[in-house]
């Protein structure tokens, strides 16, 4: 693990960039924490609103969810949650799926799933908010 210039195969530029063999450095960890904080803050705002809107007549629910401020909070929550879901499940897959082919397929399925869920949720919120 010595970083002495004589024994390392890495160029000085590589060492300075500090991105390691996966070429992404601490980016994954950092995004995981940033989305975690966003989830925490947004859920604290969204949870009371969702409880309030749940179980009402449809018109009432639509009026609550369609308010611009509520819609923006829900959109941010959906985006942040699905991002967090994607990178979280990515680690689970990398840990438990040993076969390379299955792993790649599972990682792709994970991306498809989280983007589909996020897009569907965002579409529903926008449709409600735009009054459709």
């Amino acid at each position: 693990m010595s970083a002495s210039p004589g024994s390392s195969m890495r160029t000085p530029r590589r060492r300075v960039a500090g991105l390691g063999s996966a070429r992404s450095g601490t980016g994954h960890f950092w995004l995981q924490r940033v989305t975690a904080l966003a989830n925490l803050l947004l859920i604290l705002i969204a949870l009371p609103i969702v409880i309030w809107a749940a179980g009402q007549e449809q018109a009432q629910t639509l009026a609550i969810l369609g308010h611009p401020l509520v819609a923006i909070v829900l959109l941010l929550l959906i985006f942040s949650v699905c991002f967090h879901m994607r990178i979280g499940m990515q680690v689970v897959i990398e840990d438990y799926v040993p076969a390379e082919g299955m792993k790649v397929l599972a990682l792709i399925a994970n991306t498809f799933f989280t983007i589909a869920v996020g897009s569907a949720g965002a579409f529903a919120v926008l449709k409600i908010s735009f009054g459709g």
Binding site: L65, I78, V81, I128
Partner: peptide, 20 residues
């Protein structure tokens, strides 16, 4: 719980889609 929540998010989305 992370994996469970991953599978549970569609519950919220289903509710939003149904409302819409």
């Amino acid at each position: 719980t992370g994996v469970a929540l991953y599978l549970g998010t569609p519950l919220l989305v289903a509710w939003l889609l149904a409302a819409a």
